[in-house]
Design a protein around this nucleic acid. Structure first.
Lengths: 339, 339
DNA sequence: CGCTGACTTTGAAAGCTTTCATTATTTCCA
DNA sequence: TGGAAATAATGAAAGCTTTCAAAGTCAGCG
């Protein structure tokens, strides 16, 4: 591939001048500038991002560390980040951690050797990435945590008010007359799970409703575990009349469990999800859920990163995005007959 | 960050020796080797991938170009590729094209400046990336096309036998007594759409069934367009008794359209999808579909790439992965009453 | 015309690694 | 023990860009 030296030769100028033309880092007289541009065009020259990165101590690259692209909530987030990145000339390096602390560390460590401009991280279980992140920030590399936060995190964040919207969703169930509400939470070492649970509890307290601790089950955010924990709940006596799942994947598992137990939704049991994945609309019955702006989570994070690159030295930003409750067919009034 | 020079100084050896220890590129006497390793460990040295890439003319990076990570078929593919890449020390740079030829070109062009080891591409509409790909291959960069193929493509491929499995799926519908079969295809400039259609047609010919050309509708692989084209089909007289959608997203649109028209599935109309997305199980009714091994598509592509890096100079490989027909509730015998 | 100050252009150095021709050291055998 | 052959270690060069001090050019003014 053509290099700068060749352009310099073709245009009859020095390396420095070519660099100045390409990066607009200094004035170059118009005719000279034209000659350089011409040469660039003729050979289709593109600067080596490697050499540039090496010299500048930073590449046009953003590391994106997420749990698992295969979980339907994350693609939108990634896409959001990629869109903003792409339109500003950045590329995304994608890393899956499977919520594995070790894998997260490895990625965090190895990504550094590519000198990314910044990192967008959906942190994994128990991770205390402060040390790592500090070391990134020390070298001028921004780190934005999204969706959930690691312990002791003081940097930029983009999240959703999980507690508040969980409160609202729970209230919707309460207003339908439910008294025996249960929740299947995500892993409770994730801040988002914690907050959803606390919103749920706050709504119950507000309604002066006490539930058995067994009505709160912790699961791993996947369909399979949602199913298992639903089975546990369905066998309890008295049985809950509503199940709030910590995400839609688990809600899906709940629906499966209901079907298998010959229970009707929402007549026998109401189900509420969280995430509002596309599939929520097409389940049977369609799933009521909390809609999270995944795409914007990604775009906002990328924008913050770019702001930081462009010299924003302000205090840590904590963006909280809006959510909305989507009521569909999976929730209904508690049936007199059975309660 | 620590660099090689520092290691060399700490271990009291030269740069070359450090390099030889790290890359095992030459014998180094054990005590010396230990000293170097020790130093590496003490300061947590990691070689700069940029400098290394610059020198070696290649980075541990794989460019992955796909239409849209937000389309639920692709995450599994990406994950497959990432898993194989990761466990061999490679990173994935993810690029979405939105099936936009121009964006594809831009990515293809710019990715080159990062000197990736290889490219995994799900080619976009009309793309004739032979020229680009040739230029990559000339510089020793492998390119593997998956899922669908560009015109005139002679390099490595990983696909699925779309025609065959579409034939089988269509046969399943025929065996249920359907005579008025229709198909909503994906964009017909994609080879996978073409092949699915040709399998469909072949099955019809085999059964000596003629259908109106209107029964074949071309759509854009998304739910919205599946819905619109289904509406077109449902207004036809006589109305088809079965609709084969070119992918599950469109099949979803078909189900929506049916619901809106007050038609029952499968009693009034049978629906067959393609992809077997996770949501196929949970739709109402659950969706019969062709199961494609998305994850393996990704892993296989990455493996071929790595083989090429490791010196496999053999002729182009054309891997064709297995598929399976998943029969669920959305197809049934044609109802006498209405036909 | 000559000088000053402003603006352009130059080219060497630096950034970090790998490579390879050379030099140094060790080993082995006579 | 001496010397040749084999094995190790060295360090300069190369890969491509950006940066910046220094050198060059130009216009304007006295």
């Amino acid at each position: 591939m053509a290099n700068m030296k060749e352009i310099a030769r073709m245009a009859g100028v020095s390396l420095g001048t070519v660099s100045n033309v390409i990066n607009k880092t200094a004035n170059v007289r118009e005719p000279v500038r034209q000659r350089v541009l011409e040469a660039v065009k003729t050979v289709g020259y593109q600067p080596s991002q490697l050499a540039r990165g090496l010299r500048r101590d930073k590449t046009n690259t953003i590391g994106m560390i997420i749990p698992d692209i295969t979980n339907p909530f994350f693609p939108a987030v990634v896409r959001g980040a990629e869109d903003v990145a792409y339109s500003n000339g950045y590329r995304l390096i994608l890393c899956n951690t499977d919520n594995d602390h070790y894998k997260e560390l490895v990625h965090l460590n190895e990504l550094r050797t590519y000198l990314p401009t910044g990192l967008i991280v959906i942190p994994s279980s128990l991770s205390d990435l402060t040390a790592q992140a500090e070391s990134y920030r020390k070298s001028g590399t921004g780190v934005v945590c999204i969706d959930r936060l690691p312990r002791h995190w003081s940097g930029d964040t983009v999240t959703v008010d999980n507690a508040k919207v969980a409160f609202i969703a729970t209230r919707a169930l309460l207003e339908l007359g439910h008294k025996r509400l249960s929740m299947i939470t995500g892993p409770l070492h994730f801040t988002n799970s914690q907050n959803r649970l606390s919103g749920f509890k706050r709504a119950l307290r507000g309604a002066k409703i006490q539930i058995s601790p067994d009505y709160i089950q912790e699961a791993t955010f996947d369909k399979q575990d949602g199913y298992s924990k639903a089975m546990v709940l369905l066998r309890m006596i008295p049985r809950p009349t509503a199940i709030f799942a910590g995400n839609d994947l688990m809600a899906l598992g709940v629906l499966l469990a209901l079907r298998e137990c010959g229970l009707r939704c929402p007549e026998d049991i109401s189900v509420m999800g969280f995430d509002d994945l596309e599939l929520a609309e097409t389940t049977n019955p369609s799933l009521s859920s909390v809609s999270q702006p995944g795409y914007q989570l990604g775009t906002s994070a990328a924008r913050i990163l770019l702001d930081r690159v462009n010299g924003d030295e302000g205090p840590a930003r904590h963006l909280v995005l809006d959510t909305a409750l989507k009521i569909r067919d999976s929730i209904g009034p508690v049936s007199r007959a059975r309660s």
